[in-house]
Every structure is written in structure tokens, then in C-alpha cells.
Write a protein that binds this DNA or RNA. Structure first.
Lengths: 227, 227
DNA sequence: ACCTGAACACCGTTCAAGT
DNA sequence: ACCTGAACACCGTTCAAGT
């Protein structure tokens, strides 16, 4: 599934399956690879369509034959980056373990390309991020949570991971705030990975505790209203 | 301090204190107000310098007499938005309460202008966000945490709030991901405020628990190494 | 069917001249 | 000291013509 290393590099998605006419000279994989190469050095927003075309050795307008807009180009790349992230199945542990693994994978995949903006931050939602979101919700449903409990848990975790990626990006860009804080936070010396693991763990711990007290409160309310 | 409503509207910061020569025709407050008016309808990135100048009734280049670049303009506005947020003092409750209040205020201030990008996401760190970050760290220091504990707590909370703002912005822009998820998360019907309060609470709960177990583990390690 | 140069309507920012 | 139009070097995207 979705190797970026295919040397022949022909027909990744197969979605553009036409028979007659001049064969395409570019592949989705090639385009994605070119963008990721450029995005390793600046943010996606600072990569121009002209630069991508140049990296591919074609003209800008050739690029527009494969992708209708820059937003669509972003989605193409974001989907490619997120595609390898799996949704762990029910046999792979408790809901906590499965969610942790999914989020860890997703973050690792995205953090490998800090120049890419967050999947949801542009208009369209890349289908892969929708797939993962639905994966988390289904894990929670399997964990025996009520829909509104699942929604709260999902939102909290989603928010945390989003923030983590935002901070990853800030740091990769050498933001001044990060520098200032790094000074203040001496001598903690925490890896981004460490704060992620710690934070995710703490959040899940806290969520379980809060849901528990919410439930017992509701139960006692029910008992009270019955008497 | 920093009222946006001053009618005479002269000399906000006083930093540009010159005596001779033509007096300035614009105020920082006026500029900030103009940007916030425009930013209510689109993202800051989509507001052009020309549009700001137009909103102010001057030419673009007049604007450049007050602000050296668009980034500087962003900082000017971000600082203005964050200035009213106070760092609660030691007499205003436990460290949890004080941090919750600060973060709640900060989020409310920023969420009122969802078009503004996050304070740290551009290059320079607005001084006001540095002030608040240092405020949180000092509250934690006062709460009796070791520097590395404080760093972990700070990073987790900072990350969560950043994510919350990012999600606020996505939703304000009517992102498709939000729409899709809204469908899946029916019928929870959660306000952004509700998920924020719930999440922040859960996180602080989880952080306290995790720090506690970390400490007792360290204590038992010390005991073991002594024997 | 795919490729492509030229052009359009924008950007942020610099220059050089006005008062 | 402050103001300003014109110009520069870019954008993303459209057009119209090539093969």
C-alpha cells in the first residue's frame, strides 16, 4: 500500500484510468514525492506551484492537468502521508492501547513532514483523516462508551494531537516562542516524543477518571429521582 | 490598559514618542481595530495590506510607516488581543484554579477572533504570549513542582489549548472535516466551550495523577538504591 | 489527451519623489 | 516626519494555442 519508492512509479491510484490518447507523463507518486522534497525545507504554503513543476521538470500547467488546484495538491499529499496509518482492530488490545497506537502512528507520520499544514486546516477534509477520525470513534464505541462520552473523548484527544502537531511545526520552523520557552524550561530537555507520550497518557488517564465520576453522578441522580 | 474604544484614540503605546515633525495620522488602536474588523470575515492571511489600508482610508504605504511588515502587523494585533488576559496571583486559588482561569481567558480572547492565526505560528513570538507562558510556569513553580514536572505540565496544557484554538479556527471557517465529524458525533451536540472545559479539566486531573505516580516511583527507587 | 507560453488579477514590499 | 503613486518580483489560475 502506497510505497513512495516504486522505481517504475506508474499508476498509483489507478483512478485516472483512461485508455485512448497521449499517456500521462507524471504519476501521483512522483508529484507527492516532489512536494515532500520541497516541503522538507519550507512550509507547504511557501512552496509555489511553479516550484513543484520545476522540481518535476515540467511546466506549471502540466501540473494543473493532474491536480485542479493547490488545495487539491495538499490533499493529495496529506492523504498519501496518512494512508499507512492503520486503525488497530479489536484483537489488538484495550481501547486505550488501540487509540494510543493510532494517534502515535498518525503523529509520527505527520511529524515526519513538519512543513505540511494540518490536514483539516485547509478547506477540504482529506479522506484519510476522516477515515482515522471514524476509526477512533469506532474504537470508542467498541469500548462501551455512550455517543456523547465518545464525542468528548474524541474531541479532547483530537485537540491534543492537533496542538502537538502545531507545536511540532512551530519548532521545526525555529519559532521564537519555542526558543524563548526552551530557555525558561531548562533544564527539563524534553523530546517532542516524550511530551507527546506523557501528555497522551495523562489525558487518557484523566478522561477515564472524569467519565467515571460523570457516570456515577448520573447514576445517583437516577436513584434520587426514583425515590 | 488597552481599550479599543477610546474615542480620541491618540497615543496608545506611547512608544513612538517623537516631538518635531508632522504628527502621525494613525493610531495603533485604529490599525488594530481595522484588522480585527476585516479578520471577522476572513483569515488574517487572506487580509491584504492593501485591504487594511483601504479600511483605514489611507494608502498602503502609509501603513508601512507604522508597521514594518505584515508579520509585525500580526504581532501588533495578537498582542492587543492577549493584553487583557491576566495572570492570576497566588491569593486567587490553587494552582489548578489559577491555570484554568488563565487558559480559559486566553482561549476566550483568541477565540473571539478566529481569523487570527495562532500567536506562535508565525515567526516572531508576540511578547504577550511569552508573558502568559511565563505566567503559567510561575504558577506551577509556586505549586511546588520540580522544573521538569512543570515543563511537562506546561507543554501538555499548552498543546491542548493550541489544538483547541486550531479546531476553533477550522470550525469558524466551516471546514469540511468539522462538518463530517459533526455528522458522526451526533447527537452529542457539544459547544466548543463544553469540550474545552471538559478537556482542560480531564487533562489537569490526569496530569496530577501521572505526576503523583512518577513521584512515588522515584521515591521507591531512591529507597531501593539506599538499601 | 496531454502539454505549454503568455497573460490576468492579485500579493508583500521597495523606490523615489512629494509636502 | 510623514505621505503616496508607480514599480518590482512574486503568487495561483485562466486562456488559447500547440502536438
Amino acid at each position: 500500500l502506497s510505497t513512495l519508492t516504486g522505481i517504475d512509479g506508474i499508476e498509483e491510484t489507478g483512478l485516472r484510468a483512461q485508455k485512448r490518447g497521449r499517456p500521462p507523463s507524471l504519476t501521483d507518486v512522483q508529484i507527492v514525492a516532489a512536494v515532500l522534497r520541497l516541503v522538507a525545507e519550507t512550509r507547504f504554503e511557501d512552496v509555489s506551484m511553479r516550484a513543484v513543476a520545476n522540481e518535476l521538470g515540467t511546466s506549471v500547467m502540466t501540473l494543473y492537468n493532474y491536480v485542479p488546484s493547490k488545495d487539491a495538491l495538499h490533499d493529495l499529499v496529506a492523504n498519501h502521508v496518512l494512508r499507512p496509518v492503520r486503525v488497530p482492530g479489536p484483537e489488538e488490545g484495550t481501547w486505550e492501547e488501540r487509540i494510543c497506537q493510532l494517534e502515535r502512528d498518525a503523529r509520527r507520520a505527520l511529524a515526519a513532514h513538519p512543513g505540511m499544514s494540518l490536514p483539516g486546516s485547509r478547506g477540504a477534509a482529506p479522506q484519510e483523516s476522516v477515515r482515522l477520525a471514524e476509526g477512533v470513534l469506532s474504537i470508542l464505541a467498541g469500548g462501551g462508551f455512550e455517543p456523547d462520552e465518545a464525542a468528548l473523548i474524541f474531541a479532547t484527544i483530537y485537540t491534543f494531537v492537533t496542538g502537538q502537531l502545531e507545536v511540532d511545526a512551530m519548532q521545526a520552523k525555529g519559532g521564537q516562542l519555542e526558543a524563548t520557552l526552551a530557555g525558561v524550561m531548562e533544564p527539563a530537555r524534553l523530546t517532542r516524543e516524550e511530551t507527546f507520550e506523557f501528555g497522551l497518557d495523562a489525558i487518557i488517564e484523566g478522561l477515564k477518571a472524569k467519565i467515571g465520576t460523570q457516570r456515577s453522578r448520573r447514576r445517583s441522580q437516577r436513584r434520587r429521582s426514583r425515590s
